[in-house]
Amino acid sequence: MSNSIVIIPTYNEIENIDAIIRAVFQLPKDFHVLIVDDNSPDGTGYAVRKLQQEYDNRLFLETRKEKSGLGTAYIHGFKWAIAKKYEYIFEMDADFSHNPTDLLRLHKACENGADVTVGSRYKKGVNVVDWPLYRVLLSYGASFYVKMITGMRVHDPTAGFVCYKRHVLEHIDLDSVRFVGYAFQIEMKFRAYLKNYSIEEVSIIFRDRVKGKSKMSSSIISEAVWGVLVMKLRSLFQKNRF
């Protein structure tokens, strides 16, 4: 059995799902893949079930009743992976904004001692392709803002390309994680940081999706801006919950 599972949350990713799964399975390391699908009306879950016939005991599907947010999808996947005793638990998008070959580099960094490894857009300058300037400035500015508020020295705290060692997730109170949008990514890294787990960034090139629609919205941005302040205050007064 593989010791590594890649969790990919999906909602209406029919244009990408077949290719991203095959790309992971073509890597020289034996990764397993868990798709957490929010009952996509475009048939994403059905496409995964068809592929399961080809990748038996390597490809898994958890279907939720409705679209419930990125964070809750990952929490669902984390609990599933912990129960199955995977040692290395990865987050990755379905849209090829994260290059599947970089999974090998994230895994290697964890093997070499890091507790959490982050595929970072900003460790070495700005490595983002095909984003408009306003979005680059928004993302980079958000990263600076998070560092200022939380004290974390992570260049890309909103990154969604991450590898966790299982013991990190086992020692985080997943049921108390508050955020469901991109602020979820900040909260998870902050919780690991507060527990003194080592977080290492691996520089990657991030590409905007070519197929499908972005899930970014104003409510997600608002959650990240105000949520970081609330999260920092909660960490000061409710340390036992982190």
Rank of each mutant, 00 (worst) to 15 (best):
E66T: 12
E170V: 04
Y122W: 06
L104G: 04
R49S: 14
V6T: 07
M231S: 07
S68E: 07
K165S: 05
V177E: 06
F179W: 07
V118L: 15
L233D: 12
G160D: 03
F161Q: 02
D208E: 14
D37Y: 10
R207Q: 09
F31A: 03
D93H: 10
A114C: 12
I221S: 11
T63A: 14
S217F: 03
G71W: 01
L59V: 09
R64C: 11
L51H: 05
A81W: 00
V230H: 05
S217G: 13
A23T: 12
H32R: 08
K215L: 12
Y55M: 13
S217E: 11
K165M: 03
G212Q: 06
P157Q: 08
D56W: 03
L104E: 08
Y164Q: 03
S4Y: 05
K65G: 09
I205H: 06
V168I: 08
K123Y: 07
V129F: 09
L229V: 13
V128N: 02
Y86I: 05
F90D: 00
A94W: 00
T101I: 15
V210L: 11
S203Q: 15
G45R: 10
G45P: 00
L51Y: 01
S143H: 10
F96I: 11
A192L: 13
K108R: 15
G43L: 06
G212I: 11
Y145N: 05
Y55T: 02
L34N: 02
Y11A: 07
S176N: 09
G125V: 06
G119N: 06
A109I: 15
D42N: 13
K195N: 03
N57E: 14
K84D: 07
I204Y: 04
S68W: 02
R241T: 14
S68Y: 02
V180Q: 13
V168W: 02
H167L: 02
V24L: 15
V177L: 15
K108A: 10
S217A: 15
H107G: 04
S139T: 12
M216Y: 14
V126G: 03
K124D: 14
N57M: 14
L27F: 06
F96P: 00
H76C: 15
N112V: 03
G227N: 11
L106V: 08
A159W: 01
L70Y: 01
A94K: 01
V129C: 05
F237G: 01
D115V: 08
K108N: 13
E170C: 06
T44P: 00
A81G: 02
T10K: 03
R153H: 12
Y193M: 11
Y140Q: 08
I204L: 09
G45M: 04
V6S: 04
F237P: 01
Q53R: 12
L133S: 13
E13T: 03
D38G: 08
G119R: 05
F144N: 07
V129G: 00
N12F: 05
H32K: 11
S218R: 12
V154H: 07
T63I: 15
A192G: 00
A23W: 08
T44M: 09
V228Q: 02
T101M: 10
V118Y: 04
L138S: 13
G45D: 05
G160C: 05
N99A: 13
V48M: 09
A183V: 01
K215C: 09
V177W: 00
Y88I: 01
V154A: 04
T117E: 05
Y134K: 14
W131A: 14
H98Q: 09
Y140A: 14
R166F: 00
R58Q: 15
I82W: 00
L34Y: 07
